[in-house]
Nucleic acid binder design. Structure first.
Lengths: 257, 257
DNA sequence: CTTACTCGTTTCATTATTCGAACCGGCATT
DNA sequence: AATGCCGGTTCGAATAATGAAACGAGTAAG
């Protein structure tokens, strides 16, 4: 693994952590030596990607990330394009709805609107959705070329709950079913007591770039609900895809000349 | 310079560029060998910090930045805290108003509200404000400890216009004046035909974290306007500082326990 | 059709950078 | 006073980064 990936891995740790971390804690979690960790952190701090509290000496995410996030959003306004759709879907379904973008092997939530119900699904900040164990991930796989699916199947499929699919062949079967159905279903495969339906957002070339999903407590899930909400996410994902990638209203966002 | 900083420098290049760049262009701008540049870029792509268009092979900012920016904003909601103040100030003054955060030797704009006037100041996306040549920078320096000012003065002070202060002693004098005045002034020291006033946002410990500034075409600037708007940014910066760092309404944002 | 250019990519011997065990001083607890 | 944990530092050994050169594909020019 290259030095750069090690450093970026530290940023990931800081994102995953809900609070600032000390040097020793970061080194332990990352599996690096303290000296190594510190050198990497110093370099990240010098570039503004990480920030160190001068008092507690703990490290946290730095200001450069905010600036870069804004820059990316400006060039490719995913949030602005997705937020209204997600909100509408949340109102329509009454459940927690989220959109995620594919990023380095996982799906990262971009927009999350929580259900207003007392018993609702929440997505922790910084959470990443694994491809093989979430409705979003399955929907993404179903929209991906076979070569990509093969690649994912070759990895070890981590187990999150008793219902997680950890067998490559079973995963392929589920993906095939999803392709036919047009949206994906998950039943407590990532978190206990959570069921979801999802569909992929596709770019102009058909390649998936992200997903839209509705998540609810398993107690509220029924086959009828699954199909009703499934049809909704599918329709919404298609509409968003068209809006983003100009199938309908022009303005190609990707390649600004 | 460490390998990590080299890689992060490439991200900076991509942010500064208004369009995606090819390998050769990036290598030339960064001053690295093509092979080196490519290796760094590949690692950044693998981590989602950079994205490569599979067709044109051009590189641009990646999805991870958006996710990380969101995470940082959630832990330290600068944008949410600043946006209303900046908007109010923009309405009150009728000019372009912006807030910036200190990041790796520069000030990065976080919130920008442009004037509604036809002849107005605009801030290009990805622009970074140098400390020695902008009203924001001077205001930041004036709020910084002397050791930091010394450090900045030791660098070579880049020239942007005929009015840019490039002499360390002159810079110290301007900073001293700003400390007395309570807000900073700039007259075409960074961009021709642009004048600004600014004041620093300070954390609970008094250390500056960012700035608020009003920028207008030099043709609309008068001594009276300068003092009127100067008093406004100063007051607004103080209010924001108090709001962010709990001098007034509690809730210490930095060290979430 | 050939030539000459550019671009992205790969290779590999050289070299500079990174690594990490051991260590230091500070602080809190025992 | 002793112990353990913390952030931070040192320096020889080990490793990963480097970049000149070459390759193949594509393209424009001759």
């Amino acid at each position: 693994m290259g030095t750069v990936s090690k450093a970026l891995g530290l940023i990931d740790l800081l994102q995953a952590s809900s609070q600032p971390l000390g040097l020793t804690g970061i080194a332990r979690r990352a599996g690096f030596d303290k000296a190594t960790t510190r050198r990497l952190l110093l370099e990240l701090v010098a570039n503004g990607y990480v920030e160190q509290d001068p008092e507690t000496r703990d490290y946290s995410l730095g200001p450069a990330l905010q600036a870069l996030g804004r820059a990316r959003e400006q060039r490719f306004p995913l949030y602005r394009a997705l937020e209204p759709s997600i909100r509408a879907l949340a109102e329509r379904t009454g459940e927690t709805v989220h959109a995620a973008e594919y990023c380095a092997g996982n799906l990262s939530p971009i927009v999350v609107i929580e259900s207003a119900k007392a018993n609702r699904v929440i997505l922790e900040s910084g959470l990443k959705l694994p491809l093989h164990a979430t409705a979003s991930g399955i929907a993404f796989l179903a929209a991906s070329p076979d070569a990509f699916i093969d690649q994912v199947c070759r990895r070890v499929l981590a187990r999150y709950t008793g219902a997680t699919t950890t067998d490559a062949e079973a995963l392929r079967r589920i993906v095939a079913e999803t392709r036919q159905r047009g949206f994906s279903l998950s039943d407590q495969s990532f978190e206990a007591e959570v069921s979801s339906v999802a569909a992929a957002i596709r770019s102009a070339s058909g390649k998936p770039v992200g997903t839209i999903a509705v998540a609810m407590p398993t107690s509220r899930m029924t086959p009828e609900i699954a199909f009703e909400f499934g049809a909704l996410v599918k329709a919404q994902a298609e509409e968003v895809s068209a809006r983003l990638f100009g199938k309908a209203n022009g303005e190609p966002l990707r390649k600004a000349s």
